[in-house]
């Protein structure tokens, strides 16, 4: 049966939910048909997360939900109740930029900067999940695969991949150092 009926709107009162937003408990009343993107941008003023395509085709609105990169434009705000949501605003720590932010800025990985917040959220999930045990080598194709849901129209991706590669290498090197130093202990 096709959805041709044009139903009269249901009564949809906002619902109060609590979530962990960039590490802080946040309570907010939100209508059921609002997406997480609308809640962030227009409800909470966190405009760092961008909107590019309306419907999940470009990755620009990527945020992390319980650590996983997901699309805020296709996530109903009520569905993130009690979950951890991280946006680009929460990426740096203590006033210092995240290493990815520093690398993106240094190597010129952002031109217009519009895809950058989403790109950073996908990249940070990739970097955070790196372990020496899983794979001791940084590969461009793995990075490209991790970022394959984020379109960029300015850079040709070259400098984005370079920035993520540099940070990934540092992360693995640090893990290697820690491993070696703990191995040395009797």
């Amino acid at each position: 049966m096709p959805d041709t009926a044009s139903p009269s709107p249901v009564a949809v009162a906002p619902v109060l939910i609590t979530l962990q937003l960039n590490g802080e408990p946040t309570s907010v009343a939100v209508p059921p048909h609002w997406t997480l993107l609308e809640l962030l941008r227009y409800g909470l003023g966190l405009t760092g997360t961008k909107q590019g395509c309306d419907k999940g085709d470009c990755g620009t609105c990527t945020v992390r939900i319980d650590g996983e990169p997901q699309l805020a434009c296709l996530t109903l705000a009520l569905e993130v109740r009690d979950r951890h949501v991280e946006t680009v605003e929460g990426l740096g720590v203590g006033g210092e930029p995240h290493p990815l932010q520093e690398a993106f800025a240094r190597v010129g990985a952002a031109q217009c900067g519009f895809c950058t917040p989403g790109m950073l959220m996908s990249a940070s999930a990739y970097v955070d999940n790196l372990t020496l045990q899983d794979d001791p080598v940084v590969r461009r194709e793995d990075i490209a695969a991790a970022l394959a849901g984020n379109l960029c129209r300015c850079t040709g991706y070259t400098k984005i991949l370079q920035a993520v590669e540099e940070v990934a290498q540092v992360v693995l090197d640090r893990q290697r150092e820690i491993e070696e130093s703990t191995a040395e202990e009797p």
């Binding site: 405009t47 680009v88 740096g92 950058t116």
Partner: peptide, 19 residues
Amino acid sequence: HGKPDALDAMAGLAKYTDD
């Protein structure tokens, strides 16, 4: 050098029109 104002975009602080 990169762009001096690049970190604004990185931090989600750069204001686009819809912001």
